[in-house]
Structure formats: structure tokens, C-alpha cells
Computed example of a mutant assay.
Amino acid sequence: MPFETRLADDVTLRELAKDDAVAVAHAYARNREHLEPWDPARPEEFFTEQWHKDRLWVQVLANTNGSALHTVLESADGEVVGRLNLTDIVRGAFENGHVGYWIDARYTGRGLMTAALLALADHARDELGLHRLQAATLPHNVASQAVLGRAGFEKIGYAPSYLKIAGSWQDHVVFQRILHD
């Protein structure tokens, strides 16, 4: 059964579906300026429906084979208003996954991403059997760091030149949440 949970009266967190390409494209296009400082440089085609139609199936397949859990935050009227992805799931002695997320500019400050991260952590522990989640933020992204803190993540380090964001290699603060005591 696909992962789904209500975060608020008007927002649900649910597993990405193959039919979400158009809504995802519209969400990225609508939030282009809002996300630009925090995202990798995107080609112009990224903001088109066709780009997402051509590529979204790979994320749905990753959900199916257990290598990731790609989700969307969806408003009551069916609009995608955010993404929360658990990727790079490693099994065996590690039982770890990397978390990445964003929320629509119109929905910030409502605690939705904190609630989404808490729900994902429970699902990752109880249903996926993971032991640990990891996330990283730009040092100046204090809002994202606050979200991680409220969701039970702790700062564990600093990674120089960790990811290429907004066109340049940037340092990140690294966080983890241990799911089992």
C-alpha cells in the first residue's frame, strides 16, 4: 500500500505517482525563484511538463524497488505544494537514507515540513526498517536547520564543498536522526 498521511486539513503527504508529472512541473515553475538559492542550477527544460513526464517514472520505479521513497505534499485541490524525498537507501550494516525537501513559498511557516519529516521518519523506521536518516543544509539556511531540529535531527558535522548548489560548490551542515535507540 502506498505511503500517505494527512499533515493538515488542507495538505497530505503521499507517495509520488506516475501521473504527478504535470503537477510537479507546475510546482517547480511556480516556486522557481523561491527555490533557486537552495537548488542545483536547473536547465530551462526542467520547468516544463515534458521534462517531468520523461523522467518522473524513474522516481516511481525507485519507490517500487525500495531504493528510495519519493513523495509530494499535495493540497486539498490536488496541487503539489512540496517534495520530500528519501533517497540513496543503503541496506545491510548501514540501513540509512538521505533526506531532501522543499515546500511551496505560500506554505512556509505552517509546520508542514516538520510534520512531514516526522511522518517520514516513523515510516522509515517502522515500515522500511531503516536505522538512520541524514540531511544536509547550506550553512545560511537557518529555516531548514530549524525544521530538522524540530523533527529530531541533530547536527553531526560540516562538509566543505559538499553539493553544487546555485551553480557553485557549497559547504553544508550535516544532520542525522537515529531511528532506533
Rank of each mutant, 00 (worst) to 15 (best):
L118Q: 15
A121L: 08
S144I: 04
V72G: 04
E95A: 08
E45Q: 13
L128V: 08
P139A: 10
E36T: 09
D77T: 14
L117K: 11
Q50A: 14
G66R: 12
G78V: 14
H34F: 04
E74C: 08
L73S: 10
N65W: 09
L61Q: 14
Q59A: 11
G97L: 08
E45M: 02
A121V: 11
E45T: 14
G100F: 03
D104M: 00
E79F: 00
A105M: 02
H70C: 10
H140N: 10
A119M: 11
P139M: 10
E49R: 15
E49T: 15
G82R: 10
G129V: 07
G129T: 08
N141Y: 06
H70Y: 15
P43D: 10
D54Y: 12
E79W: 00
Q145N: 01
H123T: 11
I89Q: 02
F94Q: 14
L84W: 08
A146R: 15
L73T: 10
G129N: 07
E36G: 00
G129F: 10
D88F: 05
Y101S: 04
V72Q: 05
P37Q: 01
T137V: 02
W38A: 03
L69G: 03
Q145A: 03
W57K: 12
V58K: 15
P37E: 00
E74I: 09
A136N: 03
Q59W: 12
D104F: 02
A135C: 08
E36N: 02
A136C: 05
L128K: 05
G66E: 13
V99N: 07
N85M: 07
W51M: 11
N65F: 07
T64W: 08
G78F: 12
L84R: 13
S75V: 01
R110F: 01
G66I: 13
L138C: 06
P37V: 03
W38L: 09
N63Y: 13
D39W: 09
L130C: 03
T48S: 15
R106W: 01
H131Y: 12
H98F: 15
L138K: 14
T114H: 11
Q145T: 02
S144P: 05
W51N: 07
H123Q: 06
V142W: 04
W51F: 15
D54H: 13
R132W: 00
L73C: 13
L35W: 06
F94E: 12
D88S: 13
G100M: 02
L138G: 06
G149A: 12
I89D: 07
W38R: 13
G109D: 02
T64Y: 08
E79Q: 14
A146H: 10
A143P: 08
S67I: 11
A136R: 01
